[in-house]
């Protein structure tokens, strides 16, 4: 899991990280003990959401930013409740 290595390296170098990943990779990412992970219930290759749904993408990213600033300890994992085919 390439991005997991990068997250760990950044944190050790003083840069806070948040990973946004599809639930498909949840178990792999959890096993790497990453600081902050936002899980999205979306298919592989579309972790931020449905193509063209800008409002959905913004909701996902805002949730990730909230996790970035509010997590108080490592291995904080949240799952966003957001349908892939969101109507708005």
């Amino acid at each position: 899991m390439s991005v997991g290595h990068i997250a760990r390296a950044f944190e050790k170098n003083g840069i806070s990280t948040v990973v946004i990943a599809t639930e498909v990779f949840k178990e792999k990412l959890i096993s790497m003990s990453l600081p902050r992970v936002l899980i999205t219930p979306f298919p592989k290759g579309r972790p931020i959401g449905y193509p063209g749904n800008r409002r959905q993408h913004l909701r996902v990213i805002k949730e990730a930013l909230n996790l970035l600033i509010n997590a108080t300890e490592s291995k904080t994992v949240l799952t966003i409740d957001e349908p892939y085919l969101s109507k708005d």
């Binding site: 178990e27 792999k28 096993s31 003990s33 990453l34 997590a71 300890e73 490592s74």
Partner: peptide
């Protein structure tokens, strides 16, 4: 699980 399993995770407060 990943091939790379770690028990502890680094954490840099934001």
């Amino acid at each position: 699980p990943s091939k790379y399993v770690y028990q502890e995770g680094p954490f840099n407060p934001f």
